[in-house]
């Protein structure tokens, strides 16, 4: 695209470029001036709790929601002017499946391809390929209605790829799926990434972000509160290990003063205490040495959940 791009000079031209990106609904700030760049081939995540502004951001990137203020360039183009041309090169998986329930699986893909002017025969060929990819080939002539939630999700993802998009936008791709279905999906998405498709996804699951994202931003209340690779975020905002203590109901408050000084940092949640330190076992031993007897003691590696807690003072999934 020979569009005078606003992408910051020098390095790899970014596929998506946002500066001061803002979305207002009336007087409410859903997205409050965020900056980010997504490079070609990258897998980029927006992580955040309900209402953080992830979907609002994704819809602006998808060129279906006008930007309230700031700059947004997608594939070098301005969504306000070149919406149709941008959408022609995106694949969109919305937060809620919106398949065409009046059609069969295969027809869903072919008809969706028609919206991109993909010829019937070519659409049919790609549809069959994608149904294989989504492991739905044996259901190709059934109505969408009869699919399970996980199957619908896979079909939505397959549909998003019918136009061989440069960028795939996935809004909470695995929410509501059982663990097995999630793993199948992760596997499919990982395959796409290997094939060079740029993935932009939102999630509130830490493990998902760790699995799928090269780089991510943590959003809260419309702002970006941290940015980096999953591991660098962990390194920056938490310790290597966490010791989780659960006390018998009603005794946690009394135990707190005794814990003082045992770890680098202590987070108190209503139902448990999180102790951050390089070596969780040492903390656990210290707890016992001070004569405390929690009901359970769990030593684990820290995750993005801990990052989020540190950044916002709130647990991610409340």
């Amino acid at each position: 695209m020979a569009q005078p791009s606003a992408a910051s000079a020098a390095d790899v031209p970014s596929l998506i470029h946002a500066r001061g990106l803002t979305k207002r609904f009336g007087s409410f700030m859903a997205v409050d001036g965020i900056d980010f760049d997504v490079a070609p081939g990258e897998s980029f995540g927006f992580l955040g709790p309900n209402g953080a502004g992830k979907t609002s951001t994704m819809r602006m990137i998808g060129a279906v929601s006008p930007v309230s203020a700031g700059t947004l360039r997608i594939l070098g183009m301005d969504p306000g002017r070149d919406g149709a041309r941008i959408r022609a090169r995106l694949g969109v998986v919305p937060q809620q499946d919106n398949l065409d329930v009046d059609l069969t699986l295969r027809e869903n893909l072919i008809v969706y391809g028609r919206y991109f002017d993909i010829p019937w025969a070519e659409g049919a060929r790609r549809a069959d390929e994608l149904l294989d990819f989504a492991q739905l080939a044996d259901r190709r002539d059934t109505q969408v209605e009869s699919l399970s939630g996980g199957m619908k999700r896979r079909l939505t993802i397959a549909r998003a790829m019918i136009n061989q998009p440069d960028v795939l936008l996935l809004d909470e791709p695995t929410t509501g799926l059982d663990p097995q279905a999630r793993h199948i999906l992760w596997d499919r998405l990982y395959g796409l990434k290997q094939r060079g498709v740029t993935l932009v996804l939102t999630t509130h699951y830490m493990d998902e972000a760790q699995q799928l994202c090269d780089r991510l931003v943590v959003m809260d209340k419309g702002r970006i509160v941290a940015e980096g690779s999953p591991n660098s975020l962990i390194a920056q905002y938490t310790t290597r290990e966490v010791t989780e203590l659960r006390f018998p109901v009603g005794t946690q408050a009394a135990a707190l003063p005794t814990l003082e000084g045992l770890a680098d940092r202590i987070e108190v949640l209503p139902d448990r205490v999180l102790m951050y330190a390089e070596d969780g076992e040492v903390v656990a031993e210290g707890v016992h040495a001070r004569g405390l007897h929690p009901e359970t003691v769990l030593v684990r590696r820290s995750t993005l959940e801990d990052v989020f807690l540190r950044l916002t003072g709130r647990s991610l999934i409340d």
Binding site: V64, R87, A88, L90, D117
Partner: peptide, 14 residues
């Protein structure tokens, strides 16, 4: 009800 047009709008159609 169906939000069908929302889907279509995520493609090049206006």
């Amino acid at each position: 009800e169906d939000r069908f047009y929302e889907t279509v709008l995520s493609t090049p159609l206006s």
